[in-house]
Amino acid sequence: MALKGEIVVDIEKCKGCEVCLAHCPTETIAMVDAVNGKGYHYMQDIHGKCTGCTNCAVVCPDGVITVYRVKV
């Protein structure tokens, strides 16, 4: 059994601080080249390896990350 997660980033509220990146155990998240309405690059799960550990959401200063997790 493994854990499979998904994150939903409130893109317009992400400020691109990158504090979350180092705390992702599967290095699945990264900043994307695109920018939001304020001109910030924002974070996304780009490798699809999210385990739903919530580390990124817990450490996000702006609270823009919602996390879902299922056991598969």
Partner: peptide, 24 residues
């Protein structure tokens, strides 16, 4: 399947703090 979501005790206003600031 929700495991983490910003608490409703925080409003939906965009925080006025600089990117990465610990205040948030």
């Amino acid at each position: 399947n929700l495991v983490y979501k910003k608490t409703s005790m925080m409003t939906n206003n965009v925080l006025s703090y600089c990117p990465g600031c610990g205040h948030g």
